[in-house]
Write a protein that binds this DNA or RNA. Sequence first.
DNA 1: ACTCTAACGGAGGCACCCCTCCGGTTCAAC
DNA 2: GTTGAACCGGAGGGGTGCCTCCGTTAGAGT
Lengths: 192, 192
Amino acid sequence: MTATPFPVSEIVASRRPHRKDAARNYDALLTAAREAFAEHGAEASLEDIARRAGVGIGTLYRNFPTRRDLFETVYADEVNALCRAAVEVADREPWQALTSWLNRFTGYMVTKRAVREALDDESDIFMACRESMYAAGGPLLERAQKAGVARADMDFGDLLRMVAGITATAFEDDAQRDRVLAIALDGVRTGR
Amino acid sequence: MTATPFPVSEIVASRRPHRKDAARNYDALLTAAREAFAEHGAEASLEDIARRAGVGIGTLYRNFPTRRDLFETVYADEVNALCRAAVEVADREPWQALTSWLNRFTGYMVTKRAVREALDDESDIFMACRESMYAAGGPLLERAQKAGVARADMDFGDLLRMVAGITATAFEDDAQRDRVLAIALDGVRTGR
DNA sequence: ACTCTAACGGAGGCACCCCTCCGGTTCAAC
DNA sequence: GTTGAACCGGAGGGGTGCCTCCGTTAGAGT
């Protein structure tokens, strides 16, 4: 994958330092931050993130001068992966392509929820990510609608928020989550 | 309402002190806590709650020795109101009764989400509240199922979590939230 | 009115977090 | 190898929150 079809993918790459040790630390910080945000939400301690990454707090601040910078980068990274996933499912049946992408979307929501708390919805990066994501996933819904397997009176934003909400909730087990999600998607599906 | 059909309702009353000033402070603390939890989630500062209530931090700790005590009381209070709401809608059409109760449930979710973060799911109070709530709302779903207007292959827990998830999410506006919730409930409804 | 006990509020000790600054270290280019 | 620029880690100052403790206040019963 040499081309980058979505502008967001540039964000992570552009920040990444060139020196070997610096790049390693940068990656470790991103991984640690993703974990910490998933675990503690937006309130995650930056010092804890640095500790997890096995790096001094100074190194964290050099790479990400503000808490916001760290958020944005983690978020963009995640969106990027999601966009790539949309390409991968494109060859399946319309309904199946849509639902399996939504499944991948579930994982991304963990990070998303933390970012929602911290990032302004009007933030440039947030809007760029949104755009990328709609460009990647939107066609999947449109295809299903044209094939007559998804109701026409809703848009991609409605669908995303529905799935987002459901997957962000705590369930007794994965089976229950899948069951509930399936019921909700039954409301989206047409022709049985 | 002299009788208390749900055990949870005892919790708040039993803690409330008898002296006039003490009772006033207790109420102020509960109100302030409810606001703070809705605003900041489980991480809300106890000192801030005391400040909002116009009360010293010592008073907060005397009434609620641990953060958990405060959570439990606020939560039980909310559940209690929800149980009473179930009685109020009982005389409507099955589907209408169910959906209007779910609407009331939406408001309660704001507190609930904060409590989820802080309280162990296995906590005694948490389980008692759960039981009270199921006892209050469960029959509404059962009635709809018996009337043939709700699908039979789901239980009350599934429904609650679905609604909980959707209403906890941020939407562009209330119209969108209602639209999405309606679509999801279409997956629940049967016979059109 | 008087008493005495329950309740009050906030000072203070401890812990944690944020962020800056700088002496020491390591990479990479020559 | 040498060198210097880039990078490293963490000490430290300022801020906030948690919780305890205790001198002061005010309600309730007589």
